[in-house]
Design a protein around this nucleic acid. Structure first.
Lengths: 233, 233
DNA sequence: TGGACCAGATTGGTCCTACCAATTCGGTAA
DNA sequence: TTACCGAATTGGTAGGACCAATCTGGTCCA
């Protein structure tokens, strides 16, 4: 966690805590820099990032203004928040889960239709590495992500891949916890293998069904997490 | 186009022109700043942006390194390139079009299922504004985007909305050209109205079909554009 | 000859000062 | 009350300086 990121990590809660509405002006750069104990240059780097993520707008000789985050903020803005340690709201979790399902179901269909032999080899390679990781008792989180991304890669759409990759960046910490005790890894690996076979057989329907049931397990984990959280656990 | 954006606009072609491979080191900040005739602070702002978009990686006391853009670059990275005036490659155009279709077909289904009266009112408001714009002979581009975003908003998933919004940011200039002569605006508006009715009737199947045929028109425009471009037009 | 070691150059990270031009805002005069 | 002007504020930018970690090249010793 470098200084720039941690500065954003302090800046975002500051904005949220002030309950600023879209259109409201933030304190001046000089004032913010002093308040956070950093130089103006460092502060400006953070603001530049927030600007490209469409969270704020800089008007020369006037000020820094908050934008309508929900409508105009980018997906990367959410990813950055997660990286900085800001937990997703319950609504955001539901939305991310829903969108992930939509994307991955479509991706696996395309993967089954289009996969090249090289794609399949890549998937098999990830699967072999997963087996090794499980046997060694290590955390499967990164291999799990690698498998799903390999599937999306087989769909042959790089833009698609970038979007899905954002979702996996978004939940990396949580995914490590998901595979933390090693209980879920074997089942997940078996489902991945089934997915691989459907893709190898170039059967889009079967692949989509396999992905659907695979995702259901992950989704129920998230939903239980939300219930625990809302109970104040 | 402010100075920071135009600096990135010069930085990206510089990287591309050098044919740097992922993992390669860029010139030092001091050298880049001198080369582009800006201060080190301004240069660092641009690099900070490229870093959050996962295009480069900064290693303290070592250098700035190019990352594997295709796999790890974000969707925003593409949006930024478009805003800075770098045209999409033919492959990227095909991929963006494909992904947009996937997203919007799903979005319109959800919109038909979930739309509230407020959502429908918002759609009608955009439609009324569109009619005014057409009557005034103005460019429909922004109203077109507003309509589609209003539909996605009716799907009740803000994360979804953010992703789709990125796609519309990506092609704003091109969309203005699409509606430039005013020929396409009436047909587009009529199709939007049909979509609105399907959503109002809460008929997901009809809504999806309407969106599908609507998108076909846009897609054929893009494909013809690619053909003209590949002919060197 | 080869490997360990050391010193200087390089690099990103950070802070500070200064200046500019445009915007804002307060007070003054009509 | 309104129009207007000047001072304060603000973002944009340049430039210099220092630090600590890294990198590089050459030296020295075994």
């Amino acid at each position: 966690m470098d200084e720039r990121t941690s500065l954003i990590g302090r800046l975002l809660p500051f904005i949220a805590h002030r309950r600023l509405e879209p259109g409201d002006r933030l304190p001046s750069e000089r004032e913010l820099a002093e308040r956070f104990g950093v130089s103006r240059g460092a502060l400006r780097e953070a603001i530049a990032v927030l600007e490209t993520l469409r969270m704020v707008e800089r008007r020369p000789n006037s000020g820094i203004y908050l934008r309508a985050v929900d409508k105009q903020g980018s997906l990367d803005a959410i990813v950055l928040q997660a990286e900085v340690g800001i937990p997703l709201s319950e609504t955001e979790v539901r939305e991310v889960v829903e969108l992930r399902r939509i994307l991955e179901l479509q991706a696996v269909r395309l993967a089954a239709e289009r996969r090249s032999d090289a794609d399949l080899a890549r998937i098999d390679q990830v699967l072999a590495e997963s087996a090794r990781v499980i046997a060694a008792g290590e955390n499967l989180a990164d291999q799990d992500a690698a498998f799903h991304l390999a599937v999306v890669e087989a769909a042959g759409n790089h833009v698609f891949l970038r979007v899905v990759n954002s979702f996996y960046l978004l939940s990396r910490t949580r995914r490590r916890h998901y595979f933390g005790d090693g209980q879920r890894a074997p089942l997940s690996h078996a489902q991945h293998a089934a997915l691989r076979d459907a893709i190898a057989a170039q059967d889009p329907g079967r692949a989509e069904a396999a992905m659907g049931s695979h995702l259901r397990g992950v989704e129920s984990y998230w939903m239980e997490l939300l219930q625990r959280r809302s109970r104040g656990d």
